[in-house]
Write a protein that binds this DNA or RNA. Structure first.
Lengths: 194, 194
DNA sequence: CGAATTGTCGACCAATTCATTCGAAGGTAC
DNA sequence: GTACCTTCGAATGAATTGGTCGACAATTCG
């Protein structure tokens, strides 16, 4: 059939979908196994633990994101050098951000606790929530944990301005503005209304 | 403050959001309580059990759907009588469908098992999945449990044709065609490409 | 072929999680 | 005061869950 490495990847992709929907805590090994149509114990042949899988998933998805960003960066050609260095500085912060998220997830927290934890790091709640949404594509569930009417409104409003980065597969959007929007949102939570 | 009945409704709405995202099994009383900013045990003052809450949620949401349908039906004016009776016959089947879903959920199944169960009732897998999507707004998670590439494709394609019913809040769409689309999808899984 | 290696799985376990109970107590109305 | 409404922390027993182990297919390789 396929080799071990390829099968690991299959697990990563499949588990990734489940994780991204249910969060780390709520995802069970049984589900991961079931989705792959295999016995639970077989998974332990490929990965040491649930956390091990999760780390691989995060790694994998971070890579995709990084590659997409790199591609986007390469496509930018206008005020070239300035733009480029500006972008790479931001890439560094993204690396840090990514590590930060990993650290939090390592602690076995679910999406709710995750928000709680992240709240303490940012003074404006919306930013914390937006980051979760962007990082995990967790759109709907996030609204369950929003504290105040005000915040809910703020998030809603901001989300409307997010169309560019969230649906950046729409190829017709100018690549440069798209890139900027993505970077802004990813690193600083700054969103401009269109 | 507010009376007991109103508070029950608050719980229903809040719990409903969580249920619709995580399914019955994965939703914990702690989460429901936390979302409402109250102690877990307090909820038992308003509801007898988790299942009790869930039933109330289903009831509540079915009512909303029924009301929306009724409103839509009233707005239809063209080949009046024929249309109207045709619609009410379908309303009856909806009632049945709703009961059927309730019965399945009563068994304590999560979304995965739910699909498994529903699969046995329909010969074409896509239809089962589409029904789950429509009934629960569970779009993303559904793809974790799709069996074959073919089915995934079929669901994807069909979803594209679903824009009318899924986003029927877009008021600009002609009400009559909207109604028809909704009814078609709800009761028979019949979807026309636009 | 046959033996070594690779991969799968059911049964099992210890630890944790979860729905639910209960009694105490804060609030409020009379 | 007392009666009632409401909230909650702590406790519990049952169910769930991550992970282990040994048996046993399947495949590879000599």
């Amino acid at each position: 059939m396929i080799n071990k490495e390829e099968f690991r990847k299959k697990i990563i992709v499949s588990a990734g979908q489940i994780f991204s929907h249910y969060g780390f805590k709520k995802t069970t090994m049984d589900e991961i196994a079931k989705a792959l149509k295999m016995g639970k114990s077989s998974i332990y042949y490929y990965f040491e633990s649930k956390e091990d899988i999760f780390e691989a998933v995060v790694q994998f998805e971070a890579n995709i994101l990084r590659n997409e960003l790199t591609t986007a960066i390469k496509a930018v050609e206008s005020p070239i050098d300035k733009m480029r260095s500006y972008v790479f500085v931001r890439m560094k912060s993204f690396e840090k951000l990514s590590n930060y998220y990993n650290a939090i997830f390592d602690k076995n927290l679910d999406h709710f606790d995750f928000i709680e934890t992240i709240r303490e790091k940012y003074d404006r709640e919306e930013l914390a929530i937006l980051r979760l949404i962007i990082y995990h594509g967790a759109r709907k569930k996030v609204f369950n944990v929003v504290n105040s009417e005000y915040t809910a409104m703020a998030v809603q409003t901001t989300l409307k301005g997010l169309e560019v980065p969230l649906f950046w597969k729409k190829k017709e959007v100018n690549i440069e503005s798209r890139l900027n929007a993505i970077l802004d949102v990813l690193f600083y939570g700054i969103v401009k209304k269109r």
